[in-house]
Design a protein around this nucleic acid. Structure first.
Lengths: 183, 183
DNA sequence: AGAGTTATTGACCGCGTAATCAATAACTGC
DNA sequence: GCAGTTATTGATTACGCGGTCAATAACTCT
């Protein structure tokens, strides 16, 4: 009775998300989004409403693919140090794209309540999981506060990455977090 | 021999900086910049070259007015806790504008090396001052790492502010930092 | 097979944008 | 006060942008 869609929605979002991540919201033009998704303008609008709709869908996909797995890894980490290693994996290179959610928070959230809510909700589970990991390892007196500190620092390193800060500088943040937990 | 400028450059930058801070780079249109600065288009271009030039000048003014004073306050703080209170003043409301430098880092730095450098340099003195404050209070084993952690967390709270996070949530980050220093 | 519904295509549009420029004004040094 | 230099004005421009739309294609159900 209807013509089915000829594209894989997740593949389309993969392309859109990648472009928003690299170029930001304003920097991602519809022409570039056409190319990145392989879809043409009209199909994009038919499927997602408008540019903002595509952006919101990309944000949700980012949370699902980039943040939720980290939350699960923290939940199953054997101890606090291992949980930290999820957020600050040792010996990795710096991804200058930073974090799509942090970029959206800075660029769009002040003018778009829905984006703001997505940004707030994105990191809450991570704080909670980290708080439980800290509480479980018994050595910390204020697990909730320390979790808030570490997650904020994690977001900070994503901004530093956008500014092109070196891996050494970012590793110092990780070292600071480890020192705190090792106390 | 020449016609002098009829405007106060710092007052003009005050207006431009405020608009960039509230609306971001792309969100600040030249028409709005005209209004915010009181200058008309041509004068703005004569004085600053182009929109990007005005933005760079605004960033530098922000560092001078918003970050440098904090660095000095940290330098003269009597102890580590007092230094922390400079970054996280107790009982203040959340300024949803966040930090202009962090916004610029997220939005512009990936595409503009000069903005990236300004962003990197802006927070370096703060890290150094904080590191010395921690070292001076003797109680911390890794002052440089802890300073990196705290400054990253500070930047994180600015992103949280952009996302509309509550004062309570942000206070937890501050509490976490204090707990670390009090160890 | 035909009717009905939705997806796709790609040309098209209006608008807001950053930037320009010729004309004019304001000031200084001689 | 005149020549020379720079600042100001504001109308104008070219263009890239997000968004639209009529025509066509693809599919399902009866």
């Amino acid at each position: 009775m209807v013509r089915p869609r000829s594209f894989d929605e997740d593949a389309v979002l993969e392309g859109a998300m990648g472009l928003f991540w690299r170029r930001g919201y304003d920097g991602a033009t519809l022409e570039a989004l056409d190319r990145a998704t392989g879809l043409n303008r009209g199909s994009l609008y038919n499927a997602f409403g408008d540019k903002r709709g595509l952006f919101l869908a990309s944000l949700r996909r980012y949370v699902r693919l980039e943040i939720d797995p980290a939350v699960n890894a923290v939940r199953t980490a054997p101890n606090a140090l291992a949980a930290l290693a999820v957020l600050f994996p040792p010996g990795t290179t710096v991804d200058r794209r930073g974090c799509l959610i942090c970029k959206a928070a800075a660029e769009i959230a002040p003018m778009d309540p829905e984006v703001a809510e997505i940004a707030r909700e994105a990191y809450r589970p991570l704080r909670e999981a980290l708080s439980e990991a800290f509480a479980a390892s018994q050595t910390q007196r204020h697990p909730e506060h320390l979790a808030a500190l570490v997650v904020a620092a994690y977001q900070g390193t994503k901004i530093m990455a956008n500014a092109g800060e070196s891996a050494e500088k970012i590793a110092k943040v990780a070292a600071g977090a480890s020192a705190v937990v090792t106390n």
